[in-house]
Simulated assay, not measured.
Amino acid sequence: MTFFALSQTHPLRLLSATDLANECARLEGENAQLRRAVSSHAAVDQAIGALVVLGRIAPEDAWRVLRDVSQHTNTKLRAVAEDVLKFAQGGALPEPERDELWQAIERCRG
């Protein structure tokens, strides 16, 4: 079976088995990256919802709170969102995040 690549610069180019394997590996990597991005986005969205309820703030403010906590504690946004979700379910927040979280919420309310 013969496979061709279509592109603007080379309308039809015969692909070798190596080319196909490389393209497959590239696409698998891209797929994995997209799955992580979707998962991370979902966690952030859920954490925003939790902060809206817990902090009694608007969704835009909840986004700012997550971002501020991430920046001020030097913690990835996804990790802060996951910690907030655990906290909303009765878990504990790491102390630096907890302190910054309440300060950021107060700044939004103030």
Rank of each mutant, 00 (worst) to 15 (best):
A50T: 06
D45W: 09
S39W: 10
T2C: 10
I105V: 11
T2S: 12
S70K: 03
L12V: 12
L14H: 04
V84L: 01
V65I: 08
Q8I: 13
M1H: 13
V69A: 03
E100C: 11
R36A: 07
L6A: 13
R64I: 04
E106N: 12
S39N: 13
R67Q: 09
D45L: 12
F4E: 15
V80S: 04
S40W: 06
V52H: 02
F3Q: 13
E97C: 10
I48P: 03
L101W: 03
L20T: 06
R13T: 12
D19L: 01
P94C: 01
V53C: 05
L54R: 08
H72K: 06
A104W: 00
E28W: 05
Q71I: 08
V38L: 12
W63H: 15
R78W: 11
P94Y: 00
R109L: 11
A5C: 07
L15K: 12
W63M: 14
T75Y: 00
D45G: 06
V84N: 02
T75Q: 02
C108S: 08
L77C: 00
Q103C: 10
H10V: 14
P59R: 01
C24T: 14
A21P: 05
D99Q: 10
V65C: 04
A32N: 12
M1E: 09
S7V: 02
V84F: 01
L54P: 10
V65W: 02
V52D: 07
R78M: 09
R78G: 03
